[in-house]
Design a protein around this nucleic acid. Structure first.
Length: 295
DNA sequence: AACCAGGACACAA
DNA sequence: TTGTGTCATGGT
C-alpha cells in the first residue's frame, strides 16, 4: 500500500460521472484513461465510475470524506428531482437523454471567478484560462508519484494582489479587470461570499450582480453550482436556443419573454432542468433546429 | 476563413 | 424598455 494514497467508494445510482464533470459547470477535470483527475479545494483527486459507485483516490489525508461527498452530491436522490419536472415532451426527452447528469456543489469563490472568465468563451477555452490561472497563481498540491503537477485554485486574496496585466497574461482578455474587482471585493468583505448561503435567492443574486462583470447569467450559475439554490436557472446562448427551438419553434419570442417562461415553467428544481437542456443541446441536438435522432 | 463562444456594459433610440 | 457596438481570444 502506498502510504500517500487514500481511497473510498461512494455508492451511487443514476450518476453519470463523465457527463457531470464535463458539462461546463466545473472546469478543472481532465480525463485520463477511464479516470478523471482534478483538484477540489487543496486536494488532488482522482475519480473513476464503477457500476454503482464512484471510486475516489486522494493524496492528502482525507478526513471524513464529507467534503468530497458533498462536492459530488453523492447522496442526492435524483428521483424526486425528476418527478418534480413539468411533464412536457422537450424536457422529458432531455432528461431521458442525460440520465445521471448531476449538479456539483462547488466552492463559491472558485465558481464565481471561473464564470466571470466564462463570458463568450467556449468551455474548452474556459478550461485553458482557468488552468493557466491556477498554474500561475495557485498553490502546488501534493500529487501521487509520477503524476503531473497540480495546483489549487488561487484565493481571492492572491488574485486581489495581482496586477491586471498579469491576469491578462492568462489570456482572459477584457475579463481581467472584472476578475480583479471581484477578488478585491471578496477579500475586503464588501462581497461576503460565505454569507450568501443563508440569504433568499433573490437577495443573494442581487449581491452577486453588484460585482462588476457579473450579470444575471453568471450570478445564476453561482447560485446554482456553488450555493445549490435549486430554482436558479442560468440562461446562456445554449439554453436560449433550447427554449426557442424546443418550446417556441418558428415563433419570435423576446429574451425577456423566454426568461419569464423559464421562471414559471420549470418548477422548484429548474436548475436541474436547465442543466439537462444545456447538456442535451450541446451533445444530442445538432443546433440546426432539426431534431437529432435518439437511439 | 468566417463565425461564434455557459456575457456584461455603456449608450442610443 | 429594447436594440447595437465593444471588449479579447482562439476553437471549429
Amino acid at each position: 500500500m502506498d502510504a500517500g494514497s487514500h481511497r473510498i467508494s461512494f455508492p451511487v445510482r443514476d450518476y453519470d460521472l463523465a457527463a457531470t464533470l464535463s458539462s461546463g459547470q466545473a472546469f478543472r477535470w481532465r480525463q485520463t484513461g477511464a479516470a478523471w483527475v482534478g483538484v477540489v479545494g487543496d486536494r488532488w483527486v482522482r475519480l473513476e465510475a464503477g457500476p454503482e459507485s464512484i471510486e475516489a483516490e486522494v493524496c492528502e489525508t482525507p478526513g471524513d470524506w464529507n467534503w468530497l461527498r458533498h462536492y459530488l452530491q453523492a447522496e442526492l436522490d435524483l428521483e424526486p428531482v425528476l418527478r418534480a419536472f413539468p411533464d412536457d415532451e422537450p424536457l422529458q426527452r432531455a432528461a431521458r437523454a442525460c440520465r445521471g447528469l448531476r449538479l456539483l456543489r462547488q466552492d463559491p469563490w472558485e465558481c464565481l471567478a471561473s464564470f466571470i472568465l466564462s463570458s463568450t468563451k467556449q468551455i474548452i477555452q474556459i478550461q485553458q484560462v482557468v488552468d493557466a490561472l491556477c498554474r500561475r497563481f495557485g498553490a502546488p498540491v501534493r500529487v501521487p508519484a509520477g503524476a503531473p503537477p497540480a495546483f489549487s485554485f488561487p484565493t481571492a486574496a492572491t488574485i486581489a494582489a495581482v496586477s491586471e496585466s498579469e491576469l491578462r497574461a492568462c489570456k482572459m482578455g477584457f475579463r481581467a479587470p472584472y476578475l480583479l474587482a471581484a477578488a478585491r471585493q471578496a477579500r475586503s468583505g464588501d462581497l461576503d461570499l460565505a454569507a450568501l448561503r443563508q440569504l433568499p435567492m433573490a437577495t443573494a443574486r442581487e449581491r452577486l450582480m453588484a460585482v462588476p462583470g457579473v450579470g444575471r447569467k453568471i450570478a445564476d450559475c453561482v447560485l446554482l453550482f456553488a450555493y445549490g439554490f435549486p430554482a436558479a436557472f442560468p440562461v446562456d446562448v445554449w439554453v436560449m436556443r433550447a427554449l426557442r427551438q424546443l418550446y417556441f419553434p418558428r415563433r419570435r419570442v423576446s429574451p425577456k419573454q423566454l426568461g419569464r417562461f423559464a421562471e414559471t415553467h420549470f418548477g422548484p428544481h429548474a436548475g436541474y432542468a436547465q442543466q439537462y437542456l444545456f447538456h442535451y443541446m450541446r451533445t444530442r441536438h445538432n443546433g440546426t433546429g432539426v431534431e437529432a435522432e435518439a437511439a
